[in-house]
C-alpha cells in the first residue's frame, strides 16, 4: 500500500465530480421539502434521469442534450407524484416509495438495450487564469459546465429562499399551508411547481451520473444516491450551503474508499463499499443528537396533505 500514490488535488477534483449528482438532487429536494412536501421518490427520479439522459445523449451524440432530457424525464415522473399527492391526497411517504419502485422498473426497461455502450464526452471548461493556480486550479477550476451550474444553483437557491419574495411565499406554504391559503396563496400550484423543480434537479443529477460520473448505463446504477440526497437535506438542516458541504463530505468518503480499493489497501472491498451508507447513518445520528429538541429548520407542514376546506 502506498498512500502517496493518491494525488490530493486530483482527489478533491474527483470528489467534486462524485458529489455533483448528490448536490443537484438534494437541492431539488430541499425546495420540495421547503414547500411542505416530502418526496421519497428521489431515487426513482434520479434513475429515470440517468436512463433518459443516457439514451438521448447516445442518440444525439450530445451530453448537453442528454442532460436536458434527463431534467425533462425527472420532471415528468415527479408530475405523477404531484398529481397523486396533491390532487388524489395520497399518503406522501407511500407515494414516494411507489415512485421509486416505478422509476427503477421503467429505467431498467428503457435502458436494457443501452447496457455497455459508451456515452458522449462532456468537455471540461477551464476557467482562464484561475485554472493556472497550482493545486487549487486542478481542484476547482477545471470542471465541466454542470459542476459550475450546481455551484451556481446553491447560490441561487440560497438567494431565492432567503432574499426573494417568492422564496418567502414558498416557505410560508411549507410552514403552515392553512395560513398561506387564507392569505390567498395557491398552495397546490406552488407545491406543483416545487415538486416539478425537484424532479428536474433529481433528473439532472441522475443524468450527470450516467453521462459523466460513471459514464455508462447499468441497471440500478444510482445505488441509493437518491436516498443519500434525502439524508443530505436533513443533515443540512434545510440550508443550501450546509447541503453543499455535506454533499462534498459524502463525495469525499466515496472517492476515498474507491481510491483505497484501487491502490489495493488491505481492507475487503465489501467493507469499503459500506462506508458511504454507514457515514450517512452516522451523519444523521450526529445531526439529530445536536438538536434533539425538535428539528430546527424542518418545515412545519412537511409531509402533511393539504385539503382545501374553505
Amino acid at each position: 500500500m502506498d498512500l502517496s500514490e493518491i494525488n490530493f488535488a486530483v482527489l478533491v477534483a474527483s470528489l467534486i465530480v462524485a458529489s455533483t449528482p448528490l448536490v443537484l438532487a438534494a437541492l431539488g429536494e430541499l425546495i420540495v421539502e421547503k414547500s411542505g412536501v416530502l418526496n421519497l421518490g428521489v431515487e426513482g427520479m434520479m434513475i429515470i434521469g440517468a436512463v433518459a439522459g443516457f439514451i438521448v445523449g447516445v442518440e444525439t451524440g450530445s451530453a448537453y442534450i442528454g442532460m436536458m432530457a434527463a431534467a425533462v424525464a425527472g420532471a415528468l415522473l415527479s408530475l405523477l407524484f404531484a398529481f397523486i399527492i396533491l390532487i388524489m391526497q395520497a399518503n406522501q411517504v407511500a407515494s414516494g416509495l411507489a415512485l421509486t419502485i416505478f422509476g427503477l422498473g421503467i429505467a431498467a426497461l428503457m435502458g436494457h438495450p443501452y447496457t455497455g455502450i459508451k456515452s458522449p464526452q462532456i468537455s471540461t471548461i477551464s476557467i482562464p487564469i484561475l485554472n493556472e493556480i497550482p493545486i487549487l486550479g486542478t481542484m476547482f477550476f477545471q470542471h465541466d459546465l454542470i459542476v459550475y451550474l450546481s455551484l451556481i444553483s446553491v447560490l441561487m437557491i440560497w438567494y431565492f429562499l432567503t432574499r426573494m419574495r417568492a422564496g418567502l411565499i414558498l416557505r410560508s406554504v411549507g410552514e403552515d399551508h392553512d395560513v398561506a391559503h387564507s392569505l390567498g396563496y395557491r398552495v397546490i400550484t406552488i407545491r406543483f411547481l416545487a415538486i416539478t423543480f425537484g424532479g428536474a434537479m433529481a433528473g439532472v443529477g441522475g443524468g450527470y451520473l450516467s453521462l459523466v460520473r460513471v459514464p455508462q448505463w447499468t441497471e440500478g446504477m444510482t445505488a441509493g444516491a437518491g436516498w443519500i440526497a434525502l439524508a443530505l437535506v436533513v443533515f443540512s438542516g434545510w440550508r443550501p450551503f450546509r447541503l453543499l458541504i455535506g454533499a462534498y463530505i459524502f463525495g469525499g468518503i466515496t472517492i476515498l474508499q474507491l481510491n483505497l480499493q484501487a491502490i489495493g489497501v488491505n481492507i475487503n472491498i465489501a467493507v469499503l463499499s459500506m462506508a458511504p451508507y454507514l457515514a450517512t447513518i452516522l451523519a444523521l445520528v450526529l445531526i439529530s443528537m445536536s438538536r434533539f429538541r425538535g428539528n430546527r429548520g424542518a418545515p412545519g407542514c412537511l409531509g402533511i396533505s393539504f385539503v382545501k376546506t374553505v
Binding site: 388524489m88 391526497q89 411507489a98 419502485i101 416505478f102 427503477l104 431498467a108
Partner: peptide
C-alpha cells in the same frame, strides 16, 4: 417480456391503490 416490466407493473399498482384512497376517505 423483460423482467423489469413486472416491476413497473407493481409500481403502477401501488400508484392506483394510493390514488383510489381518495374515494375511500372523501
Amino acid at each position: 417480456l423483460p423482467a423489469a416490466a413486472i416491476q413497473v407493473f407493481q409500481g403502477m399498482l401501488l400508484f392506483f391503490l394510493l390514488s383510489f384512497d381518495l374515494f375511500v376517505h372523501y
